[in-house]
């Protein structure tokens, strides 16, 4: 145990995701030894992010305005809506530059063990976005794991009856990879989801 402030810092850092006690200690000592100006900028960045950044009122992506830049962008196709779990998924899809529609961030996935049900996600808001006829296709891009699949199934149950085209991202082989290196489950999925060539 260290004295007062140092231990407080280690404790706080240790609460961050992906940082264990050893890493927390390393980061804390780095901060202690680093240039005062640099660390002031870090502290400011943390304060600013908490003060300024909020969630978009429409899609729940992170935003500095009331509505995010993507929702405001009139060049984006308003008829396509991509549903993702987290804001970082928006960034991942944006990097591909192949999707020109809009997003809806659920804020997680259905996970009863963690106490997250549909009511804790932004599903009600999604339904109200779909209430006019602007959106014609909803693309479900939740993670291809158990909880993500459960969330997709839930959305399918909710939206199946209202007559909007519902699609799910394909899962299968990674591009540029070798067939022999794919794991069995992925390869099996790729077989199930094979596409017709002619």
């Amino acid at each position: 145990m260290y004295e007062g402030a140092v231990q407080d810092l280690i404790d706080e850092l240790g609460r961050l995701p992906g940082i264990g006690p050893k890493s927390a200690q390393r980061v804390a000592f780095h901060i202690l030894e680093a240039d005062g100006e640099d660390m002031k900028r870090l502290a400011d960045a943390i304060t600013t992010v908490k003060e300024k950044v909020k969630f978009c009122a429409i899609c729940f992506n992170v935003s500095e305005e009331n509505t995010c830049r993507i929702c405001q962008d009139s060049r984006r196709d308003p008829s396509l809506l991509c549903v993702v779990e987290e804001s970082k998924d928006v960034m991942a899809i944006e990097r591909t530059r192949s999707f020109r529609g809009k997003y809806h961030v659920l804020g997680g996935s259905i996970n009863p063990i963690a106490g997250i049900g549909p009511d804790q996600l932004h599903i009600r808001e999604l339904l109200s976005r779909l209430s006019d006829d602007t959106i014609t296709e909803v693309i479900v891009a939740t993670d291809p794991n158990l909880e993500g699949e459960a969330t997709a199934t839930y959305l399918y149950r909710m939206l199946g009856s209202i007559g909007i085209k519902l699609t799910r991202l394909a899962s299968g082989l990674p591009v540029g990879g070798d067939l022999e290196y794919a794991d069995d489950v992925t390869l099996g999925r790729a077989f199930e989801g094979r596409t017709v060539m002619s």
């Binding site: 259905i110 009863p112 049900g117 549909p118 009511d119 158990l146 699949e149 459960a150 199934t153 839930y154 149950r157 909710m158």
Partner: peptide, 13 residues
Amino acid sequence: ATHESTLAVWDHQ
């Protein structure tokens, strides 16, 4: 009602 529809999802899984 939410519970029932969530349960139905897990039934399916």
